[in-house]
Design a protein around this nucleic acid. Sequence first.
DNA 1: CGGGACTCCTGCCAGC
DNA 2: TGCTGGCAGGAGTCCC
Length: 297
Amino acid sequence: MPELPEVETVRRGLEPALLGRRVKAVRLNRPDLRFPFPADLADTVSGKRILALRRRAKYILIELDSGHTLLAHLGMTGRFTVWLPKEAARNLGEFYYQDQAGYSGDGPHDHLVIDLDNDARVVYTDPRRFGFVDLIEPGGVEGNRFLANLGVEPLGNELHAEFLATALAGRRTPLKAALLDQRIIAGLGNIYVCEALYRSRLSPKRSSATIVRKRGQSPLVEALVHSVRTILSEAIEAGGSTLRDYARTDGSSGDFQQRFDVYDREGEACRTNGCNSKIMRLIQSGRSSFYCPTCQR
DNA sequence: CGGGACTCCTGCCAGC
DNA sequence: TGCTGGCAGGAGTCCC
């Protein structure tokens, strides 16, 4: 599930139940996910208050009053769910939470269980265990090994045509690979790269440097930046996309998958007016790319 | 340095 | 029905 819009949806879903709360207990159901849990994770996080929930690219950052930051990545199948008693859920206003008070957190793929002082139970579940959790020491966010080499936030001010033109100039790598490269733009994944390329009418196979003009503005780069920003904004607005499991902390689905123009639509009709082509699939760096061979050049 | 292949792991689905 | 192979939203590591 999780690219940037899904991670942002999860962050927003966690916020009302977690913000300002104190951690009562932390339980690890196994020693590792993709990487070992930090040895002092449970001891360090227990008793701390949650000051902020942030997102950087596809990472969720939970800031504690000790200055530590809990970092979580959802990998391919990771998800957070929040369980809390009915009265507590009601007190949180517009947000609805699963009210199975006392949910065990002992499901086969429940790996991390955090209990809060408002009786919320936050459970990290991840069947494939491609996700991971890290504990960052006070002042260590910038230098953290997972965050240090990330590129710009696609919805932030740092992403603009001149930036992307500079990043792509001279690169012969296919656009698909360049957009998946988290060191350039951080937060895009396979789905939204496919969709953004379709919207900007660019082929995933096209060599990156060819959309950059040596002098002046690069209209194709501008179109691509615009597509990236709008597709992500629309997907966040829709609560993200839900494919094989649930994106949201209350267990409900996102809606955006219904609006995919190319992703997972191999053999189906291109949606561009007047185009009679079918969506094609090809493998690039081991991942499926979906595109219209007529509209995307 | 860039780029590709491989890897981790489980679940699901199409096809035989 | 039951098995098998392929594929899945990610990204670090290794090798050329």
